[in-house]
Amino acid sequence: MLTTSWWKINSAVSGTSSKDMPQVIAWLNDLANRFASIFLSPIAWLPGWLSATIVGVVTGVLMLIVFKYTSHQSAIKQTHDQIKANLIALTLFKDDVRVGLRVQGRILAGAGRLLLLSLVPMLVMTIPMVLILGQLALWYQARPLRVGEEAVMTVQFVSTDEKAVNLVKLNPTDGVALSIGPVRVPTKHMVYWSIEPKQSGLHEVSVAIDDQTFTKQLAVGDGFMPVSLKRPPRQWTEMLLHPREPAFSPESSVQSIEIGFPDRDSWTAGTDAWLIYWFVISMVAAFAIKPLIGVNV
């Protein structure tokens, strides 16, 4: 389950969007970007494993505290106790199979109750966790392009503007060279370019349709930098997953611009693996701290 890639989550959560929801997400993303620019900036100069560990520990402890104050602690403790009692009962009263099955039924019911009781803290934590994971993904999900390393940039157009696919052009930029393209696919309302960075740094690549310009961040370098894979359309799920750049408005001809950044190869701070590592570390940290702050989870 955990091996599901961060970006595969995208497909799982995509769907419903509401008229007002994107604006809320835009505000939250703005807030998260400001916080992250302060609190996550050390990732840039720390070793990946260390920063991933620190982030995991801190978020684990913070979430545990949130859990403590948003959950029905006494009900959770009681349910835990009931589950434990029933587990002990399995060892004490094992002669009668009917008694055993009844006890197991109660364990299942207890597990269900535990899930229900975790619903409220889960809901409360969903928003901050999505924002935090969105920010962490910027750092760990992909690595920046290296100088001279080619990548494909994809621009997705709105289906109602058929001319845009043919009119779009890549604006020349000092730090980035065009190697191939544009490749236009009118049936999918897409245009591709292969680009090649010439200098390290955080660049902006822009495309133009007539007098309109659309930009996309491009991270180039060797270490850790926030890498925005996609400038998203104005859909709240997409905006949550790609929080760094402002979304395109629904009226815009361009709906998204995506750059195929390479995977980062690391067990702790690499593509996909960072999420598993973060989850494990945050769990371990919270379990370790649990007795000290007296939380029933």
């Binding site: 599901t4 969903t126 989850f279």
Partner: peptide
Amino acid sequence: LAYIGPGAGFA
């Protein structure tokens, strides 16, 4: 699991 964070994850 990816969204709920560690606290609810424990539960």
